[in-house]
Amino acid sequence: MIRYIYGRDLGTHPRLRDGMFRDRAAQFVRRLGWDLPLTPDGREIDAYDGLDPLYVIWETPGGDHGGSMRLLPTLGPTMVNDYFTHLTDGVRIESPLIWECTRFCLSETADPRVAAALMLAGGEVLEHFGVAHFVGVFDARMVRIYRRIGASPEVLGSAGRGRAAISVGLWSFETEARARVATRAGIAPETSRRWFDAAFGTPPRRTETAHVSRQANRNSQLPREITAAVSVPVA
């Protein structure tokens, strides 16, 4: 399942926390060869982890870290503004409606659907927290993964070539993209919503949603879970 955990609460999930920092070391340092410092016990932790970010984590049925990403508001320090403005034409991307998404990481044994599940969770954040876009830095080798899950970012700028290319990208989930990602993840939007509510509580929702959803189902050839996603009101 998807967990949403602020940095300050990671201590209550030691297994997920340690798995995440170890899997980040495995992915970014060992597999992608990024020059990042590791702690003596082999975990990849940087300064932004100290800023109490919001982590989105895939917890495997066995209770282990399966993949994760890290969210921070762009009004505070962000990697994109601190290190990568040469990829954004010198523009500091700052807005209460744009969050930074970094350290998109998958464990080596992760089910291929985990990446899509994380993106689906990102869509929940965009919809329910009034966020318009995620901005983030990514490696050329992630391009294929993003494409496969149906969540390719808009590239704002790139440096380097081929496998060494690094880009700043922008995600803004339109509804149809979310439906596509939900299908790739094999997770019903209702389930995704339930995990989100488990973390943040259930707000009052418009009852008309269910009505629209029924109508959409009647008029559409699409599988039920997809039409349900389409009918979710986008804030």
């Binding site: 523009v91 500091r92 991307i93 807005s95 876009h133 808009e154 704002l156 700028g157 803004s172």
Partner: peptide, 11 residues
């Protein structure tokens, strides 16, 4: 791209 422009304008 227009997306990029959109972000620059939002910033």
């Amino acid at each position: 791209s227009e997306h990029t422009l959109r972000v620059y304008i939002e910033s």
